[in-house]
Design a protein around this nucleic acid. Structure first.
Length: 337
DNA sequence: CAGGTCGGACAATCAAGAGG
DNA sequence: CTCTTGATTGTCCGACCTGA
């Protein structure tokens, strides 16, 4: 756990002011107020840098508001939600990412005095720096072409890491549902490979459509592990709980026809009550959202299977034909039904 | 006007790479 | 082994919106 060791008394001196935004009497017995970083200047006369707490509470994090090291934090106290003022869980930083060669270290004094980050310093200058990931790079690979899942995958699952951290969030893919034709005929390995991009597609769509701050919330393992089930349910209480006001997974379902349904036979083992340790740390786990985006097998009858198969064929045919707008819309409509 | 939402700037962190 | 670099991740400022 990375978040815990962060706590240090970063404000050694006594508090010097009460923030203007909070009444003076908010915290009669609470922890000392922190000095406002922007109201102080360093000895050089420059404004002090903004100081951040090591770990904001979940409420402040959600509201993007200033938090405090104290628990409950002043803001939570102010709004009477002190009981829910708990540290947010920090993600663990990715490990094992290979990095390109660094800029040469500057040795001479003249080099030091010169602008350290000139744009014209070669391929690693800021302006000329090549994009870390080529355009069109497979999104299931990281920027160095490694399977994005590989690094400390076990750690990820042990530490509640969300699958969508595994995929590369940098390159949104086609926002359109991708047909998964031929999945029925392919071998399990092929299916796995095929599922990867589609899984990413689903995840990208899901999260790119989320408000920024709720993308984080969706990571909560509880919500994540419920994803396998909510697709075929009339509602997703867990997801709704994760962000009760804004994020309704059903909205996404409406735009996510379950075209990948046939493959759900493989993921049919998903049980609605998966325990936190129950995820199998396999590369395909990163696709579990895709596989799980389809209805669980237990909930999919033979009728549904044939229906999905028919849908898939329909969409395939529609794609193979010259896709006039009418055909596309028709196929899309039928897919949504 | 208070409180909520959110884009984005900024800060903190730390693993990989460079260099001695 | 230490230091530097730079990617990643989190915090929260400030503008905007909404409802009382």
């Amino acid at each position: 756990m990375q978040s815990m060791p962060y706590y240090q008394p970063s404000y050694p001196q006594a508090p010097q002011y009460a923030p203007t935004g909070s009444p003076a009497g908010v915290m009669p017995t609470g922890p000392p107020m922190l000095g406002h970083p922007l109201q102080h200047h360093d000895p050089m006369g420059q404004p002090a840098k903004r100081k951040q707490v090591k770990n904001a509470c979940t409420n402040c994090q959600k509201a993007c508001k200033k938090c405090d090291d104290a628990r409950p934090c002043p803001r939570c106290v102010k709004y009477g939600i002190a009981d829910s003022c708990v540290n947010s869980v920090r993600k663990e930083r990715k490990k094992g990412i290979k990095r390109g060669p660094y800029k040469r270290r500057q040795k001479s004094e003249s080099d030091k005095t010169s602008q350290p980050k000139r744009d014209d310093q070669g391929p690693y200058g800021n302006a000329m720096r090549a994009p870390p990931i080529p355009y069109g790079f497979p999104s299931n690979l990281n920027q160095y072409g490694q399977p994005a899942y590989d690094y400390n995958a076990a750690h990820y699952y042990k530490d509640q890491m969300a699958q969508y951290n595994v995929v590369n969030p940098m390159y949104p893919q086609m926002g359109y549902p991708v047909l998964m034709q031929g999945q029925n005929e392919s071998s399990p390995q092929q299916q796995q490979q095929q599922q990867q991009p589609h899984a990413n597609t689903y995840q990208q769509q899901q999260h790119s459509s989320l408000p920024q701050h709720y993308g984080n919330m969706v990571q909560q393992p509880q919500a994540q592990q419920q994803q396998p089930t909510y697709q075929n349910q009339s509602a997703s209480p867990q997801q709704a709980h994760a962000s009760p006001q804004l994020y309704n997974p059903q909205q996404h379902q409406q735009h996510q026809p379950t075209l990948s349904a046939p493959q759900s036979v493989n993921s049919a083992q998903h049980s609605p009550d998966i325990k936190p340790g129950g995820l199998t740390p396999m590369p395909s786990a990163s696709t579990s959202t895709a596989t799980s985006s389809s209805p669980p097998g237990s909930a999919v009858g033979e009728d549904d299977k044939s229906k999905y198969g028919g849908l898939s064929q329909l969409c395939t045919a529609a794609l193979h034909q010259e896709p006039s707008g009418q055909d596309q819309s028709a196929a899309h409509d039928s897919a949504q039904q």
